[in-house]
Write a protein that binds this DNA or RNA. Sequence first.
DNA 1: CGCCAGGTTGTCG
DNA 2: CGACAACATGGC
Length: 286
Amino acid sequence: MEILNITQTDKTVTAYPVYNLNLEETLNCGQCFRWENLGNNSFFGVVKNKAVTVCMTDNKLSITPCTKDDFYAIWEEYFDLKTDYKEIQKSLSKISPVLKEAITYAPGIRILNQDFWEAICSFIISQNNNIKRITGIIKRLCESFGTEISKGVYTFPSAKTLASKTVEDLAPLRSGFRAKYIIDAAQKINDGTVCLSRVLTAPLKDAKEELMLIKGIGTKVADCALLYGFHRLECFPMDIWMKRAMNELFPKNKPSDFGNYAGIAQQYIFHYSRMHPELFSDKNKN
DNA sequence: CGCCAGGTTGTCG
DNA sequence: CGACAACATGGC
């Protein structure tokens, strides 16, 4: 890949050339729930304790407010700018014409490197839920228990903060039966029962087992946390849409067919399927 | 009103 | 192991 140029003017850092990154596709494809679309290819969001506006025009990614240090410390990794997606897409396209079509449909998707705890907590909330409601619950979670870093802008609350809460405390979130899972996750991570640095470095099978010590984390939520939080690109979360897609669009394939970048393939397929519900008229449940 | 949602748990064969 | 109800809530 070509070297990335980084320039800073006032409070804005611009990186270029950033090929093939589409913010709309990336931030609105079901892997994250906190970015607000401002229009004109601009989004406002909070990552860790940094609130920024990002904008993509003509292969230039600009971030405001941002320093070069912030860019290298947070954003370069967050937007996965060092991974060669063109090369990965080329190789995935050979696996199946349908996958190639899904890639062509939204080639600007990238797998984000989200905060560990935010990814874990967000996908606990996602279970048996819809994206609109997930987004609302997470918004209320941040407003209720996060830190207000500027007027009306909140961080994602820490595991430490949530570890001391009760199910009644979380009632305003309207998260239903998931509240007890959020608290169990916060407690086990806060007291070290589940060690996130071990999840990051352990072999995949062990990392997954460790996450699944948390009540409310099964195979699918663990795969999502590992893919979106720990950047385990080989994980292939199987939700209701992916089951439909595998049954109807990839009847001859198994998840293992998608290789080391199965998680990226999954994201193209998930997004393509959700944007084309008519492909699943009978919604064959399974 | 009824079905469904980026599932997991607990229980029963 | 596999099947299956229950789970909270609200979008559509």
